[in-house]
C-alpha cells in the first residue's frame, strides 16, 4: 500500500491567497491541481512536501478562450477540456493530436495543462507542443506577473523557471493566418510515455515558402524540447519532401536521446528524424489547406 508522508493541506481561494500560502509554508510547499504526477511521486516518497496547496477551486485559472489573435489557456485547464475545445482543434491541431495520446481519458479528466508543464518531465508531450508553437507562459508572484517564453521555461528535467513562491497562471499562444501544426508520437502501448514524439508548426508566406517554423521534440533529450538548427534550415524554403526530410535529419542530429527500456539511442534518434518529417509533412498540408 502506497501512502504519502504526512503533510499540511490548504485550499487556496484565489491566486493571491495561493501566493500567500506559498510564502507562509516556504519552498517545501507544493501546489497541487490534478495531482497525477505529484501524488504518485508522493506515494513512492520520491516527493515529500511539507504542505500541499490545493488550487483546484480557482476558476480564475480555468479559462480557455481566443482573445484577439491569441489563444489563452489557463494553467488549470484539464487535458480533457483542451482536447474537447473546437477552437483549439481549429487553430492548433497539434494540441489535439498531443492530448489524444496523453495518458488515458480518465487521467485526462483530472490532469492539467499547467501541471504538465511545471512537472517538466522530459517525456511529457505538451512541453514540446507548446515549444513548437512558441507559447508564452505567464507566471504570477508576490511582486506581480511576468511573462516567459516557453522556450526559456524549462531549465532541465523536472526543473522550470517558476520559483518556489510563484504560480504558472496561463499560456498564451499566438494565432497566425496561414499556419498548420501537427504532433506525432510513437508509444509502446496506448497511454504510455513516448519512445519519441515530434510536433511541428509551419506558417507559409508569399509564394508558399516557409515563413515560420517551430519544432518540438519529446523524450529525446532535445534542449528546451526543440531543434533550432532544423527550424532555421526550413525558413525561406518550399516545404517539399526533400526539405522536410533534411529538417528531420538535422533535428535528429541535434538531440541527445538516452537508452532505456523504451529503446536504444540509435532507434530513438531514428524516430526523432522520422517523426519530425511526418509532423512537418502534416503541418505543411494543413498550412496550405490541403489537409484539415
Amino acid at each position: 500500500m502506497q501512502v504519502p508522508a504526512s503533510f499540511e493541506f490548504e485550499r487556496a481561494e484565489s491566486v493571491g491567497h495561493a501566493l500567500e500560502l506559498l510564502e507562509r509554508y516556504g519552498p517545501e510547499a507544493r501546489l497541487v491541481a490534478g495531482g497525477h504526477s505529484l501524488i504518485p511521486m508522493m506515494k513512492l516518497r520520491l516527493a515529500q512536501p511539507d504542505a500541499l496547496i490545493d488550487i483546484n477551486g480557482l476558476a480564475e485559472l480555468s479559462h480557455l478562450a481566443v482573445a484577439g489573435d491569441t489563444l489563452v489557456i489557463g494553467a488549470l485547464v484539464r487535458h480533457a477540456a483542451l482536447l474537447a475545445d473546437p477552437d483549439v482543434g481549429r487553430y492548433f491541431p497539434i494540441f489535439h493530436e498531443a492530448e489524444r495520446v496523453i495518458a488515458d481519458p480518465v487521467v485526462r479528466n483530472r490532469g492539467t495543462v499547467g501541471g504538465s508543464l511545471c512537472q517538466a518531465d522530459p517525456s511529457e508531450d505538451l512541453s514540446a507542443a507548446f515549444a513548437a508553437v512558441r507559447a508564452d507562459a505567464v507566471i504570477a508572484g508576490p511582486g506581480g506577473s511576468r511573462t516567459v517564453s516557453i522556450r526559456d521555461f524549462h531549465v532541465g528535467p523536472y526543473e522550470t523557471v517558476v520559483e518556489p513562491g510563484e504560480i504558472l497562471t496561463e499560456l498564451r499562444v499566438p494565432i497566425r493566418p496561414g499556419a498548420g501544426s501537427a504532433y506525432v508520437k510513437v508509444e509502446r502501448r496506448v497511454g504510455d510515455w513516448p519512445v519519441a514524439a515530434a510536433g511541428a508548426y509551419l506558417r507559409l508566406g508569399p509564394g508558399g515558402v516557409i515563413a515560420e517554423a517551430g519544432l518540438g521534440l519529446t523524450a529525446v533529450g532535445a534542449e528546451h524540447f526543440t531543434a533550432p538548427e532544423a527550424e532555421a534550415y526550413l525558413i525561406g524554403k518550399e516545404p517539399g519532401e526533400a526539405v522536410l526530410r533534411e529538417a528531420g535529419r538535422i533535428a535528429a542530429e541535434s538531440c541527445e536521446p538516452q537508452a532505456d527500456q523504451r529503446g536504444p539511442v540509435d532507434y530513438k534518434r531514428h524516430l526523432a528524424g522520422e517523426l519530425t518529417f511526418r509532423a512537418l509533412s502534416r503541418a505543411a498540408a494543413r498550412a496550405d489547406g490541403s489537409q484539415s
Binding site: F9, I39, P40, P105, V106, V107, N109, R110
Partner: peptide, 9 residues
C-alpha cells in the same frame, strides 16, 4: 466525471 480515486486525496 470519472477519476482514478487512488490518485485523488
Amino acid at each position: 466525471v470519472p477519476v482514478k480515486s487512488c490518485t485523488v486525496l
